[in-house]
Amino acid sequence: MRSIKKIHKAEYRPIADLVTYSPMPTRSLDHLDPFIFLNHHGFQTYPAQNRGLPFGPHPHRGMETVTFITAGDIVHMDSSGHESVICQGGVQYMTAGSGLIHSEVSSTDFKKDGGDLEILQLWLNLPADKKMIAPNYKGLQKAEIPTFELDGGKVKVQQLFGKWNETEGAFEGNFPITLSTIYLEKGGNFEKSIPKDENIFFYIVRGGLTVNGEEVNFRNLVEFENHAGAINVEANEDAILILGHALPFNEPMVAQGPFVMNTQEQIREAYDDYQAGKFGTWTH
């Protein structure tokens, strides 16, 4: 088995009336190269006539976002002209690259009627030679994402990036990465071997799991040692898990606000370029 190094509990960081937890970065874990940030919004139930998600227009450069909608919906708009409404079970993948402005808010129907909401956003770093690639966006509904089953159907895997059990991921990344959303019924289990050189991102969204013999509950991130061995997972109750792995870049990283670059000078350039209107025009 691949040894557990540490279990990191997500810290509570509410944003207005939005319940938010984050396991990374925290005092105990800065990042897991190239996985650099996670916000877990919800689970919560909004009343009718609510304001919805508070993420109006804001810029990004030098990184990517993967957004998991496990309850509710999200409206994406950006300065490159992309626009979509993704609902429960869907996933968004946005490459900020050289820079864009985007907003992530709730649909008109959700703000009118209310309902359950749970959305997670994971930030991925970009390697130095791809920091300034052209921005891009792709949003997929649940039915559009390749899914396969393990353990007689007790484990359902949404394959987002990379390949697992001959199933190719829905998205093509800008560097080699494997990423899945895994839905487990109580008693469901699976085992996966991951190359020892790759860093593992393992975050429990809902429920409780036994991971390599250790019980871990939701809103916890499991950090693993880098040596050979498998990960064995069994669900103690119905659960949702985000599991990813990738080789670290091992490059300098400077993260400030919405920008993730390699040097402080590049961060200054990002702010200058944004203020000079080089991230596109917001016309929504």
Rank of each mutant, 00 (worst) to 15 (best):
Y203R: 10
Y203K: 10
Y203T: 10
I204S: 07
I204L: 11
I204E: 08
V205T: 13
R206G: 02
G208E: 15
G208S: 15
L209E: 10
L209N: 04
L209D: 06
L209W: 11
L209K: 06
V211I: 15
N212A: 06
N212G: 05
G213M: 04
G213N: 12
G213A: 07
E214W: 01
E214T: 15
E215F: 07
E215N: 11
E215Y: 05
V216C: 09
N217R: 08
N217M: 04
N217Y: 03
N217G: 14
N217I: 07
N217W: 02
N217D: 13
F218M: 13
N220H: 15
N220Y: 03
L221P: 08
V222Q: 09
V222P: 01
V222I: 15
V222W: 05
F224Y: 11
E225F: 04
E225D: 14
E225Y: 02
N226A: 00
N226L: 00
N226Y: 02
H227E: 15
A228D: 14
A228P: 00
G229Q: 12
A230R: 11
A230L: 11
I231H: 00
I231G: 01
I231E: 03
N232I: 08
N232A: 14
V233C: 05
V233Y: 04
E234Q: 14
E234G: 09
E234C: 14
A235Q: 04
A235R: 12
N236M: 14
E237L: 09
D238C: 06
D238T: 03
A239V: 14
A239K: 10
I240D: 09
I240R: 10
I240M: 13
I242G: 12
I242Q: 07
L243K: 08
L243V: 13
L243F: 15
L243G: 05
G244T: 10
G244E: 05
H245I: 06
H245K: 03
A246G: 07
A246S: 13
A246M: 04
A246W: 04
L247D: 05
L247V: 06
L247P: 04
L247G: 03
L247W: 03
P248D: 03
F249H: 04
F249C: 01
F249M: 00
N250D: 11
N250W: 02
E251Y: 01
E251L: 02
E251R: 01
P252H: 02
P252D: 02
P252I: 02
M253S: 11
M253Y: 01
M253L: 13
V254C: 04
V254H: 02
V254A: 04
A255Q: 11
A255D: 00
A255T: 06
A255I: 05
Q256E: 11
Q256R: 11
Q256K: 15
G257M: 03
G257L: 05
P258V: 06
P258L: 07
P258E: 07
